[in-house]
Design a protein around this nucleic acid. Structure first.
Lengths: 172, 172
DNA sequence: CGATAATTGTTATTGACCATATCAAATATC
DNA sequence: GATATTTGATATGGTCAATAACAATTATCG
């Protein structure tokens, strides 16, 4: 609660000095990021937000979020799995996965089928429409989303970036 | 809502085949990630979660979140700025920044000072305790957090990773 | 100057996401 | 066959992000 007089004086000095410069200059100058721009977590988070934002724009016509896209991809690759298995490999908690599936099922993209082996579980399958939509989604991701990344980093860098991020995701 | 008979049959077939294999094997085998492991957004998000998790563990003794750490860093580097300026450069909306500052101020890490130039705005300053805590935080980040990253990737890769992420954050 | 517009910090509120506890039905275990 | 475990589901709470609105202050401009 107590700010040292020295600190307050320093702050006022800095504010006054900036105000003086701003009087001559037009717009308030940008802040110094300093060590922040070297912080892994900071730059990682901001990059992730930008990538998701771009993903949503690319997918606007299909109305698929990154999470929904990942579910469709995983179900396509692993037909015959139940909700718990799909959810847990995606890091989604089972309770939170229910509404997500309700959404996808209501849009006729995937379906729950009561398993005959274990009548507690629901087997997940893509509908025909789900397969078609996923196919279009993949094309959009490839031509709009990943293409933008290649353009920005180059193919080789893109691969090494993915590799490093995977390593962090798996071993950090 | 209708699943094609073919799709359902395929799903049942896959489930049955897996059940047969599982009968001989012990645990249910892992799912195939497939194209998911190449998706930038997917691996980026998972890496970010892991990094934040590790950051919180390293900072447990100081009780600083990544967002709080970034605020302290930015205020230290830019004394004499007001809430709007600090918040907006961090991508935090002004309304959401209020509670954050309430927290930091209640812990005596930073303080709001009514500006004499513009009596609407609050100038932000680190308290002496705030400076001390930030100093300890930086040491913890360097020795525990970033060190782990270096150990995992190597210094050169670490730098190129940060550079690529910055590029994505700024230009994607 | 004075009326109007814009800015600053703040509150209230909403929606998205994440996490825990709990439940009924079904299955596994002993 | 009694008990424990698993599966999908519901309810609920917490943390963030986003918008609207407000009082106090300052800027703008006739």
């Amino acid at each position: 609660m107590t700010v040292s007089k020295a600190a307050e004086a320093t702050a006022k000095g800095a504010e006054a000095a900036r105000a003086r410069r701003d009087a001559s200059d037009e717009a308030g100058e940008a802040l110094q990021l300093g060590e922040l721009s070297e912080q892994l977590g900071y730059v990682l988070k901001r990059a992730q937000l930008k990538v998701f934002e771009n993903f949503l724009r690319c997918m606007a016509s299909l109305q698929l979020t990154p999470a929904q896209f990942s579910v469709l991809l995983l179900v396509e690759k692993n037909p015959g799995r139940n909700q718990t298995e799909i959810a847990s490999t995606l890091g989604i908690l089972r309770p939170n996965f229910v509404a997500m599936l309700d959404n996808l099922e209501s849009r006729d993209l995937c379906a729950r089928i009561r398993s005959t082996n274990d009548r507690r579980s629901h087997i997940l399958v893509l509908t025909d429409k789900g397969k078609a939509v996923l196919g279009r989604a993949k094309k959009l991701v490839a031509t709009k989303h990943e293409a933008r990344l290649n353009e920005l980093l180059g193919g080789a860098n893109r691969e090494s970036l993915i590799a490093m991020l995977s390593k962090i995701a798996n071993e950090f």
